[in-house]
Simulated scan of single mutants.
Amino acid sequence: MGAVGLTDMLAGPRLGFLPLLTLGPTFASVSGGVRRTVLVGALALAICLPLSAYSGVLFNRQNNLTIATITAVTGASMLAAHLRIRRERELANVRMVAETAQHVLLRPVPRRAGDLRIALSYTSAAAEARIGGDLYEVVTTPQGVRLLIGDVQGKGLQAVETAAWTLGAFREAAYDEPDLPGIGDRLENSLARHLGGERFVTAILAQVHEEEISLLNFGHPPPLIMRSDGRILLAEPEEEIPPLGLVSLGPAVPAPYRVPFGTGDQILLYTDGVIEARDASGAFYPLLDRAGVLGGSDPQAALEELRADLLDHVGGPLQDDAAMLLLRRHSRPPARDGAGITR
């Protein structure tokens, strides 16, 4: 507004730059509150009136229209600022509810469980979203550490609702059922009651044993095994099992398969948003080739490095949600007796 006033004073009354003073209250309504907008509008009038008198046009027809325009724009900007602030407060409340839902639906996983170190990475494809159609869970039960990672068909709130049903059923069944097929049956029965049409969930159920890990794969991408000696391989299922919600179309009794999982080994469970991510030329993300970055001493830092490499490959936001769960097996700490002596 100072630049407008100086330009008008130098140019004289013939060009008439004073109507541009309305830019002041207009921009004030974008970043400030109602009070600030009023003060900027009053400042615009305080600049306009002396300059009009200086130019000898005060209270003529054109100048009266300029004063009325500044006053009207200030009033409209006050209303716009009021509505913007109200919308911002509503958005803040919605975000607070969304964050609460995130903590309930996708709880933080434990970073340690027995001789396991666990790392997690979750990236939602939806702008500003914290949760989407991918799901994960890690629970420590009397039977051992049990895990779930899955991907709901579709996107949006409907996918989030399906993910909530799946996670709720798993959290109950993981403690009650003696084996992975029993958990799978509970998930299938729960989803059959709530899913409609041809909706389904691809998922992997896992349970960690002494020197092995059991996997029950329901149409999900196979986990990546990284041996302590540097070998990398995919833990392919022995037989194809349809996704949850469509299990009745497959074998009568889905059977888990066991994979060696000893000290120093790692297993990466992930959703198809990782391996189906494309670069500008349409090439898929080469997970097998890039898995070497997971060799760092800190599993979480290594997984974050892999996530950064994935985003760099895409060169922008992901087109699908991407969840990654990394388990690394360490040697068990030595047991101590009641006197604190290592045995």
Rank of each mutant, 00 (worst) to 15 (best):
Y285S: 09
A302G: 13
A101Y: 00
D229I: 00
G16Y: 11
R336V: 15
L49Q: 04
I149Y: 10
R146Y: 07
I149M: 10
T342Q: 14
L215Y: 13
A80N: 06
Q207G: 13
L6E: 10
E128A: 14
R186K: 06
G295P: 04
G133P: 08
T74H: 12
T71R: 06
L325W: 03
A280S: 04
R343G: 08
E211Y: 15
A80I: 01
L45I: 10
L311E: 11
Q62F: 03
A169W: 09
A53T: 14
Q143V: 09
V97K: 00
P260Y: 07
A169E: 15
L91F: 14
L51Q: 05
R61C: 05
T263V: 15
G24C: 01
L10D: 14
P19S: 08
L116C: 07
T141L: 06
I131E: 07
E238Q: 08
A92R: 15
V97T: 09
A169I: 10
L246D: 03
A192S: 14
A11R: 00
L120R: 08
M78Y: 04
R329C: 07
L327G: 01
A81Q: 09
G132R: 03
S29P: 02
A280E: 08
G5I: 14
H194Y: 09
A291F: 06
P237Y: 06
P19A: 15
A255S: 08
V208P: 11
V160Q: 04
R86I: 15
G316A: 07
D272K: 00
A235R: 02
T141W: 00
L167F: 05
P317I: 12
G154N: 07
E305R: 15
V152A: 01
G5W: 11
V57I: 15
I67K: 05
T22P: 01
R117W: 03
A3E: 12
G132L: 01
F170E: 07
M324K: 00
V30W: 06
R84N: 12
R307S: 07
A28G: 05
L310V: 03
P50G: 14
L191K: 03
M9G: 09
E239F: 03
A129E: 10
Y122L: 07
E90L: 10
S77G: 00
R61F: 13
V40T: 15
T141H: 04
L23C: 15
H103P: 00
L43S: 12
D309L: 12
F218K: 01
L187S: 13
S31N: 08
I47R: 05
Q143S: 13
I267F: 11
D185R: 06
S214D: 14
L15G: 01
V34R: 11
